[in-house]
Amino acid sequence: MIHLAFVMAFLPYNTLVVASGVAAVGCAAGVIGTFGVLRKRALVGDAAAHATLVGVALALLVTGQRNLAVLLVGGLVSAMVAIVLLVLIRKFTRTRDDAATAIVLSVSFGLGITLISGMVSRGIPGSGGLERFLLGHTASLTANDALLLGTVSVVGVLCIVVGLKEATMVAFDPDFAAASGWPAATLDLVLIALIAVMVVVGLPAAGAVLVTALVVIPPAVARQWTERLIPMLVIAGLVGFLSALSGVVISSLAVQVPTGPVVVLVATAFLVLSIFGAPCRGILWRTRAVSSLSSEFLTKTEVGVATPTGTERRP
């Protein structure tokens, strides 16, 4: 931690702002992703992420300016279109859900690649830089871009904080929510839209291919540590924050390294540590608990009390 602070002190102002903006994105993606994962929508986010490329390319083609906000709005629109298509395929055809996800994901990505490569080969100004949306490249962000990303993230988290009760309802039991008079379908839609927004603002940090990790891995880490929602949200936010921050710092030190892979690997390191070491659910913990339980069980049966849980039943 001291080492990190030391590095931060020597970073230029721009990098500092970018780092905090992207870290805010990581935090918000962790929080909102928790609901996505609980609702079993992890890979819907992935399909949306791959589809953003189409919108980003079209936004550049139509407006002709390389303003990050414009590109991201384009990405958001195409992500929402992809989600709608996914829902339509699931509803109106007998294609299996997983195949539908894979189809939307790969075909929209193909369309994005086609558009970008066509624009590059026609020499449309600014189209060369679009490739940084594939794997993420925070080194090219300006302070203003980072402020935009940070603001959107804060607003996203505020939405969740304000609608915590509704979101919880819909995430855990949409049928019950609908039955007790909540507008469950609308809330579900808002939740999906929030995930799409997070995927889009995560683009500069992790790129279209890997941004889904920002909304999946932090909740997975948090799941290892707690059984309750609010601690889970806090832990997921924290893990997202730390992974995004370290991604930016490392890629600002080694410029040719794309940010996305670094962010993902840091988050996965957290996950692996948690799977082994987390209290109660961690593998090490469980192994110890099982061995102590079985030894207890053996001693108990030796003295003739055959209760597997080790608690004597009284008449």
């Binding site: 079993k40 999946v216 892979p261 690997l265 996950l271 659910r281």
Partner: peptide, 18 residues
Amino acid sequence: AGLWEDASVGVSFTTLFA
């Protein structure tokens, strides 16, 4: 790790690709 099925796919492929 008790993760949901889609989430575990999401974690594993992003990690290996990264």
